[in-house]
Nucleic acid binder design. Sequence first.
DNA 1: ATCGGCTATAGACTTCAGCG
DNA 2: CGCTGAAGTCTATAGCCGAT
Length: 302
Amino acid sequence: MGLKELAGNNLGLTSLDLRKLKICFLLADRIEIVPTETIEKKYNLRAGMINQIAEQVSWLLESAYKISELVSDMVNNSQHITILDHMLTNLELKNFLKALALQVKFGVPKEAIGLANLHVPNLGRVYIQRLVQNDLAQAEKIRQTDIEFLKKILPEKIALELKQVVAEKSSTSSTPIQEVDFFAEVKLEIDGSTVKNRWKVVLNQIQHVLSYCSFKYLLKLVEAVYSKPEGWIHKLDLDEGDNQAKYIYRLRKELSLKAEEVIENNGAGSYRLNLKKEEVRVNKENLVRMGEEEIKRLVGKL
DNA sequence: ATCGGCTATAGACTTCAGCG
DNA sequence: CGCTGAAGTCTATAGCCGAT
């Protein structure tokens, strides 16, 4: 059904319904990279208004995503699971909301979210569409593409900038770039500054100050996320002796975590952080500045 | 206050010998 | 061979204590 039929209002929709539908159609067009000029004419709105609508709707979608995440956490900890809860815990729904929020925000198709999220200056929807049409939606593909070809489909300055950003992204990550999750947000931040002998970290937007021992354990777990397959580190690599369970227990307690939440155990004597590399940010400068040899050594491996 | 050594206990899970 | 129960392993959670 197009706008004209809707405007004819054969379905007896209220004007409020029509307004909502108009925004839906508008945003859908925008995601499919219909040129802004066309959208302006079709919906009789100017670009500024269109961007504002996208911004607001994206924010609401992002909120819906956050709620779905919270509810699923609550449900995971409860015994009573209804069909509704299943819908809310559904990973697909969460991912859908998150992706849609970003799609609406940037006004690009799903496969181009990562590209838009690179925030390359002046790389707007239209240029992104050219990249998508040339099967260059993934950073890795752009990395492998000759700069001369990029210059043909993008203005030279943007092409050079894009190449550079993509190269930087891959050098900070040891895995191939296609595995990088562009949706990832920082969940754990190792700040590394100290407050009265306690070390600052931020987990899920909540700040904690850890004892040296707990902090060291956390840093070792982070290092394993970077260096080991699946991020598992055996307790004997964590520490000598046989107190590891106790120290992990103390670390969890200082982070207000329950067992198996964020810090997992695999039943074979290994522990890991249930986080992706992209979800962890380490302030290396701070850590090195503290001058602790052991900490410096760990930072060197990141 | 923090750390690390030692100890204990409950519970989940695995292994294995012995039995029918 | 499959089943069962005992023994063993591993973890989470603790407590106590002495050193710093």
